Amino acid sequence: MPLIALDDVAVVRLDDRFNRQARSLLYHSYKDEPTFKYLLDAQRPGYKQRIRATIRELIGLHMDRGEFIFGVVHKADDRLLGVAFFSDLQLKMDISKQLFWRLKMILTAGFESTRRFVDYFNDVQESLPSKNHRMVSLIGIHPDFQKQGLGKLLLESIHAITDQDENSIGLFLDTGNNRYLDFYQSLSYEVFTELPLGQLKEFVLYRPNPNYIDRTA
């Protein structure tokens, strides 16, 4: 595993120039994750093509919607080592109503995988509170650079921004991989709810905003 010094990287807001790198990075980050293996039926031939297509369409959808995209970039060569997409309540959506996105997904990932993904996505969205909040929708550190502090650096940079919004109750994300729970809990996340996902559990995690002001009290 290549070693990298934190002084050699920077967390920056990304634009479309990093689209290809983000697609490759998230493919490597998610291809072995239980959630994606279930949603896209890893036992059926063509799984790699389905996950690449799903990530490509998700990134395109999030970019079209103007979500924040932050990345950990190597300063010397602009190589993307980690990426996170996050949005606020105003961008919360019912993905089943994104007709053009669904059509492209069906053509590339297949009907059953698209149905599973839409159901999963909407179940997560519906589990969240109606109060103003932020949501991390996609996040990954390239497997070659994990366990070197880059994920913590990326999330702490996001926290520094989201905590400035005193009207937001906090930040949510979800994972089907319970081996990440200790990492997230070390960054003040707590389990908000658990959702069934086939034979799996999807954990919806919540990090309260320490600067939130409840103006309804």
Rank of each mutant, 00 (worst) to 15 (best):
F111S: 15
E112S: 15
E112H: 15
E112M: 15
S113W: 11
S113F: 10
S113P: 14
S113L: 10
T114N: 14
T114W: 09
R115D: 11
F117Y: 14
F117E: 08
F117D: 05
V118R: 03
V118Y: 06
V118I: 14
V118M: 11
F121D: 08
N122S: 12
N122G: 02
D123N: 12
V124I: 08
V124S: 01
V124K: 01
V124E: 02
E126H: 07
E126F: 08
E126A: 12
L128R: 01
P129F: 00
S130N: 12
S130K: 10
K131G: 05
K131T: 12
K131M: 07
N132V: 07
N132R: 13
H133F: 01
H133T: 00
R134L: 14
M135I: 07
M135Q: 10
V136D: 00
L138V: 02
I139Y: 11
G140A: 08
I141Y: 06
I141Q: 09
H142L: 10
P143T: 06
D144G: 07
D144S: 13
D144A: 14
F145T: 08
F145C: 08
Q146S: 11
K147L: 12
K147R: 15
K147Q: 15
Q148S: 10
G149Y: 08
K152Y: 10
K152V: 07
K152A: 14
L153C: 11
L155D: 04
L155Y: 10
E156K: 15
E156R: 15
I158D: 01
I158Y: 00
I158M: 03
H159V: 04
H159M: 09
I161G: 04
I161T: 11
T162L: 02
D163S: 15
D163E: 15
D163N: 15
Q164V: 06
D165S: 12
E166C: 10
N167W: 05
N167L: 12
N167V: 10
S168E: 09
S168H: 08
G170Q: 00
G170E: 00
L171E: 03
L171G: 02
L171D: 03
F172C: 01
F172W: 05
L173H: 07
L173M: 12
D174Y: 05
D174L: 04
G176H: 09
G176I: 03
G176S: 12
G176K: 05
N177C: 11
N177T: 14
N177R: 12
N178S: 14
N178K: 13
R179L: 09
Y180T: 11
Y180R: 06
L181N: 03
L181W: 02
L181F: 02
D182E: 11
D182I: 06
F183E: 03
F183H: 04
Y184L: 06
Y184H: 07
Y184A: 04
Y184C: 06
Q185W: 04
Q185N: 09
S186P: 07
S188D: 15
S188R: 13
S188E: 12
S188Y: 11
Y189A: 04
V191G: 02
V191L: 05
F192R: 03
T193G: 02
E194G: 06
E194K: 14
L195H: 02
P196N: 09
L197S: 04
G198A: 08
Q199S: 13
Q199H: 13
L200S: 05
K201E: 00
E202W: 01
E202T: 07
E202V: 03
V204C: 00
L205N: 07
L205T: 06
P208L: 06
N209Y: 02
